[in-house]
Amino acid sequence: MENSILEIQKPKKKSFASLGYTKLETAELVDTMNKLLANYAVHYQKLRNFHWNVRGGDFFDIHEQFEMQYKTASVVIDEIAERIRIFGQRPLSTMREFLETSEIKESGTDMTGLEMVREVIKDYHVLLEHLFATIEVAIENGDSGTEDMMKGYVKHVEKNHWMLTAFSHQG
């Protein structure tokens, strides 16, 4: 009886031949990463849009903040796409694919700076949902590389969320 309990509790053993993931595991990992990638891509373009079109009394602060955030998003997008390639799969890569897949939607340019900040805060909620979903799928499939990568992104998104939320509560 004791042996059967120990066998059940053993972690999943990977062969690491071709990363050691089954087709199903690979499909689950890539699907969740592609959804995250699409949301980051639309978020990135929205940040660039806002960076170019923000105006008003807080222009310099918001303009600079959006630029820093879209530069970071660009790096994250590249890393997620490369992680998908590590699994031998193709990342989403066209605007059509991104827009069809993303929960984050495009925004116009006729917004105040504060409205833009609040829109980005909403995007961070969506990104966090997808980051946590990706972490969950990575854990379920024994993919510590993706899990670790996503946890780093969570910290960054949470910090940006906090900073923009603090800014948006101006007196």
Rank of each mutant, 00 (worst) to 15 (best):
T109I: 07
K155N: 13
D31E: 15
E79T: 05
D58Y: 14
T101C: 07
V42E: 00
L19W: 10
S93M: 15
W162V: 04
I5N: 12
V30P: 00
R90S: 12
P91E: 08
T72N: 11
L47T: 03
E106M: 04
N160I: 04
T32N: 08
I62H: 01
M68L: 13
I8F: 14
F98I: 02
S107Q: 03
K14E: 05
R96Y: 00
G56Y: 03
I121L: 08
D61K: 10
F98E: 02
G20I: 08
T165M: 09
E147C: 01
A17N: 05
R118P: 10
M150N: 05
G113I: 10
L164A: 00
A41M: 01
F59H: 14
R83K: 11
L19K: 14
R90Q: 10
F60I: 11
F87M: 09
S144W: 09
S74Y: 04
V137M: 03
D31T: 15
E129S: 13
L6D: 08
F59Q: 09
Y40N: 11
F50I: 05
K14A: 13
D58A: 15
K13R: 13
D58S: 15
D123C: 09
G171M: 08
T112V: 03
A138M: 02
R96N: 02
H156L: 14
N39C: 11
L128G: 04
D123A: 09
T134D: 01
M95A: 10
K46I: 14
L19A: 11
E100A: 15
Y70L: 04
V75N: 02
A27K: 05
T72K: 14
K12A: 12
K122G: 06
E106W: 02
L29S: 00
G142T: 12
E82W: 15
T165Y: 10
T26G: 04
K122I: 06
L99H: 03
L128D: 01
A41L: 02
H169R: 10
Y21R: 12
L19V: 05
Q9C: 03
S102C: 10
L99M: 07
F66V: 07
T32V: 14
E119M: 04
Q89M: 15
E100N: 15
K23H: 14
I86G: 08
H125Y: 14
R83E: 02
E64D: 01
Y44C: 00
S74K: 12
S102R: 09
A81G: 11
T112A: 05
G88Q: 09
E79G: 07
F87H: 08
V76R: 02
D143K: 12
G57E: 02
A41C: 04
N141K: 15
I104G: 03
K71H: 09
V117W: 07
I80H: 04
E115L: 08
I104V: 14
E67L: 12
V154L: 05
S93E: 12
L127M: 15
L6C: 09
T101H: 02
K13I: 08
N53D: 03
I62P: 01
K13T: 06
Q69W: 09
F98T: 01
Q69H: 13
E129K: 12
G171T: 06
F60V: 11
V126E: 02
D143F: 11
H43E: 02
L6F: 14
L92M: 03
I77Y: 06
E67W: 15
G56M: 05
N34P: 07
F16K: 14
